[in-house]
């Protein structure tokens, strides 16, 4: 047993971190706030060339052959650096296409030619677990679908990929987070081009873990942002970090980040190994990391005082993204209801 990433695993994460630092620094979110998409096509292609979309996909299916552990560390870096763009649905969408045997679609996604946005269902979950659905119906909220050829829907019964162009009544909406693009759309008997059921592949658990990993990154980044400010900001002739009101706020952030990180790494291994309590651990990870990211980001605004309330500062971007992540895969209350219904952990 060793819960910590190996040097090799950390190297993959840090290569990705360097790329994001150069190509998608947080300032991009402010600079492109009025553009229809946040990540331009050049950067998207380079991400594909780096192999970021297929990191956790088997080599024979066109991926890099790493595991969920490595993907988890990648998404933690994305959370830390508030990387914009539809990375999560693209990574999961490539997997769905590959596992469904839609190799052309998979290779279009993996090569960066086609991105995948995320569709959140309005209303109750639609698919029947017993049958394989062929079409999609209903109303949806879309995330980062503007320049995406496909959108991915994650239901408890399974994951479906459809063409964005087949959706109707698409209209964009202002988003609370300038790092995402939001739209509303309808689907009327839209053909499903790739489907993977929950029985075949725990794609939803992967999504929970990867989303939680981004929340961990936010919890860590806001802890660091606050700590740094507490060291350098001088008031009454001393750094504000000497005051327990600030010091203890930072200490609480450190505890939340550590708890969330530990649980997300634990859950990633449980899902990767197919342990009996994988769902328990993934729901626990999502619940803890999601909440702690919001709490840390909120505290960061307070620690920064007036600066924290400005658009120019990064604090609010972390807070807004933390809230976005809370609502991606069903509501937090729904996750808790599922968690309490699970058998006890192993």
């Amino acid at each position: 047993m060793d819960l910590l990433p190996t040097p090799g695993q950390m190297e993959i994460a840090s290569l990705a971190a360097d790329f994001f630092g150069n190509e998608l620094p947080i300032s991009v979110i402010r600079e492109r706030r009025d553009e229809p998409v946040v990540v331009d096509r050049r950067v998207w292609s380079e991400s594909a060339e780096l192999g970021l979309f297929g990191l956790g996909i088997a080599e024979e299916l066109g991926g890099a052959g790493c595991e969920l552990a490595e993907e988890t560390l990648l998404f933690r870096e994305m959370g830390r650096r508030l990387v914009p763009g539809p990375f999560l649905p693209t990574v999961l969408g490539a997997r769905v296409a590959a596992l469904a045997g839609q190799h052309e679609t998979a290779s279009a996604i993996l090569s960066g030619k086609a991105a995948v946005g995320l569709a959140l269902r309005r209303g109750p979950d639609g698919f029947d677990a017993a049958t394989t659905p062929s079409t999609l119906d209903g109303r949806f909220q879309l995330l980062d679908a503007a320049d995406s050829r496909y959108v991915l829907l994650l239901d408890p019964a399974g994951a479906a990929l459809v063409e964005t162009a087949a959706l109707t009544d698409v209209h964009s909406e202002p988003a609370i987070d300038p790092g995402i693009r939001l739209a509303e759309a309808r689907a009327d008997a839209v053909p499903i081009i790739a489907w993977v059921s929950t029985q075949e592949e725990p794609i939803r658990l992967r999504a929970l873990v990867l989303t939680a990993a981004m929340s961990v990154g936010i919890a860590e980044a806001t802890r660091d942002l606050s700590t740094e400010h507490a060291k350098v900001r001088v008031q009454f002739g001393r750094p504000i970090g000497v005051n327990q009101a600030i010091k203890h706020a930072c200490a609480d952030m450190a505890v939340r980040a550590e708890a969330a990180l530990s649980q997300v790494l634990f859950a990633a291994i449980c899902v990767q190994d197919g342990r009996a309590d994988a769902e328990f651990q993934a729901l626990a990870a999502k619940s803890v990391a999601g909440r702690f990211a919001v709490e840390n980001a909120s505290a960061t605004i307070q620690v920064h005082g007036g600066m924290g309330y400005t658009f120019e500062h990064d604090s609010h971007l972390f807070l807004k993204r933390a809230h976005v992540l809370e609502h991606l895969l069903g509501e937090p209350a729904d996750h808790l209801a599922r968690l309490v219904a699970q058998p006890a952990a192993q």
Binding site: L3, A259, S262, Q263, A284, S287, A333, A337, V340, A345
Partner: peptide, 25 residues
């Protein structure tokens, strides 16, 4: 009550993971 119980489950799970992380370190 159900949410508080679920939250407790998530937090004791995290506590265990934290202990594993600490021992690993």
């Amino acid at each position: 009550i159900a949410r508080r119980l679920a939250t407790a489950r998530a937090e004791v799970a995290s506590l265990r993971a934290m202990t594993y992380a600490g021992i690993s370190r």
